[in-house]
Deep mutational scan, measured.
Amino acid sequence: KPRTPFTTSQLLALERKFRQKQYLSIAERAEFSSSLNLTETQVKIWFQNRRAKAKR
């Protein structure tokens, strides 16, 4: 499956949310993903990858 090209504004929103909170609840993820026009899976995986990056 092809890589999702996130827009700059989506990335800024994702990073801002990640700084507030590294783990989103299912409800938060649902609301946040629809506000960004992304799927919940895209947001879930982005947060997983971002947490992995933060550990490195």
Rank of each mutant, 00 (worst) to 15 (best):
R29M: 15
Q20N: 06
L12D: 15
Q22S: 13
T7Y: 04
F32I: 06
E31V: 04
T8H: 08
A13K: 04
L24W: 03
A13W: 00
Q48I: 11
L11M: 11
L14A: 01
A52Q: 13
A27G: 12
T4C: 07
T7K: 05
A13F: 03
I26S: 14
K53I: 11
Q10W: 00
P5F: 08
S9L: 10
T39H: 09
I45A: 10
S9V: 10
Q42P: 00
F32M: 13
L11G: 05
R51E: 08
S33F: 06
R56E: 15
L24S: 01
Y23F: 15
W46M: 01
S9P: 10
Y23K: 10
F32W: 00
A54Y: 07
T4Y: 11
Q48F: 01
R51N: 12
E40P: 07
R19Y: 12
Q42C: 10
Q22K: 06
K53C: 13
L38F: 02
Q10K: 01
R29A: 14
A54L: 12
L38V: 09
F18E: 05
S25C: 05
K55Q: 10
I45F: 10
P5D: 10
P2T: 05
A54T: 14
V43G: 00
A54W: 05
R56C: 10
L24R: 01
K21H: 12
K44H: 11
I26H: 13
Q22F: 08
Q20L: 06
A52R: 08
L38Q: 00
K55M: 13
N49A: 13
I45V: 13
F32L: 13
P5V: 11
A30W: 07
T8F: 12
F18G: 01
L14T: 03
T39F: 02
Q48P: 03
I45R: 05
F47L: 05
T7N: 06
L12F: 08
N49Q: 13
F18K: 01
K44Y: 08
K44I: 10
E15A: 04
L36E: 09
T4M: 11
A27W: 05
N37M: 04
E40V: 04
W46G: 02
K53N: 15
L38H: 01
K55Y: 12
S25D: 11
T8L: 14
A54G: 09
R19W: 11
E40C: 03
A52L: 07
A27S: 12
W46P: 04
K55W: 07
R29P: 01
L36G: 08
K55P: 15
Q10G: 05
K21R: 10
Q10N: 06
A27E: 15
R16W: 11
K17P: 00
R51P: 03
A30P: 04
S9D: 06
Q42L: 10
L11D: 12
F6N: 04
F47Y: 03
K21A: 13
L12Q: 14
Q42K: 06
T39R: 04
E28L: 03
S34V: 09
I26L: 12
E28W: 01
F47Q: 02
R29S: 14
L36K: 02
Q48A: 11
A54M: 07
Y23Q: 10
L24K: 01
E40Y: 03
S35I: 14
N49W: 13
A30T: 11
L12W: 02
S33L: 00
L11H: 01
W46Q: 00
A13P: 00
P2R: 06
R16G: 12
E15N: 11
S9C: 09
A30I: 14
A30V: 09
F32N: 05
T7W: 00
A27T: 13
E40I: 01
L24D: 00
R3A: 14
I45Y: 08
L24N: 00
R56S: 12
L24T: 00
R56I: 14
L24C: 05
P5K: 06
T41S: 13
K17N: 01
L36M: 09
E40D: 08
T7E: 02
L12N: 15
Q10V: 05
L36S: 04
T41Y: 11
Q42M: 11
R29H: 10
L11P: 00
A27F: 05
K53G: 13
A30Y: 06
R19E: 14
P5C: 09
T39K: 05
N49Y: 11
P5Q: 14
T8W: 02
R56L: 11
P2Y: 07
S34D: 07
Y23L: 06
R19Q: 10
L38M: 11
R56T: 15
P2E: 15
P5E: 14
F32A: 03
S35F: 05
F6Y: 10
L36C: 04
Y23D: 13
Y23T: 11
S9N: 13
K44N: 13
K21F: 03
K53Y: 14
F6A: 01
Q10H: 02
L11S: 10
Y23N: 10
N37Q: 09
F6M: 07
A52S: 12
A52T: 09
K17H: 05
S33E: 01
A13M: 08
R3L: 13
T8E: 14
T39V: 03
W46F: 03
L12R: 08
S33T: 03
Q20A: 07
F32V: 10
K1D: 05
L12P: 01
E40M: 01
K53Q: 15
L11C: 10
F6V: 03
L12M: 15
L36W: 08
L38Y: 01
E15C: 03
A52H: 06
A30Q: 14
R51A: 11
T4W: 05
A27R: 04
R56G: 15
L36Q: 04
L12A: 14
L14Y: 04
T4A: 09
T41A: 11
T39S: 12
T41M: 09
P5W: 03
P5I: 12
V43F: 01
R16E: 15
P5G: 06
Q48V: 06
K17L: 13
L11F: 02
F47W: 08
Q10R: 00
P2N: 13
R3N: 15
R3I: 15
R16L: 12
T7L: 08
R29C: 15
I26N: 13
E15D: 02
S33W: 00
R51D: 05
Q22Y: 05
K44E: 15
T41V: 09
S9A: 11
Q48G: 06
N37V: 03
E28G: 04
Y23G: 07
P2C: 00
Q20V: 06
T8R: 10
T7G: 04
T41P: 09
K17I: 09
P2G: 08
Y23S: 12
S9Q: 11
R50V: 03
R19A: 14
E28T: 02
S25V: 03
N49T: 11
T41N: 14
Q48C: 04
L14V: 00
E28F: 00
W46H: 00
K44Q: 13
T4L: 09
Q48L: 05
A13G: 08
I26W: 10
P2A: 13
S35W: 07
S34E: 13
S25I: 04
N37D: 14
L11R: 00
L12K: 14
R50S: 09
S33I: 02
Q42V: 11
P2L: 11
E15V: 02
R51I: 15
E40G: 04
S34I: 13
T39E: 09
Q20M: 11
A27I: 07
S33R: 02
A52V: 07
E40T: 04
S34L: 10
Q42G: 03
I26P: 15
S35V: 08
P2F: 05
E31Q: 05
R51Q: 11
E40F: 01
I45E: 15
R51C: 02
N37P: 03
F47I: 00
T4P: 04
F47P: 02
P5R: 03
T41H: 08
F6L: 06
E15T: 02
S35M: 10
F18A: 00
L12T: 13
R56W: 10
K53H: 14
A52K: 05
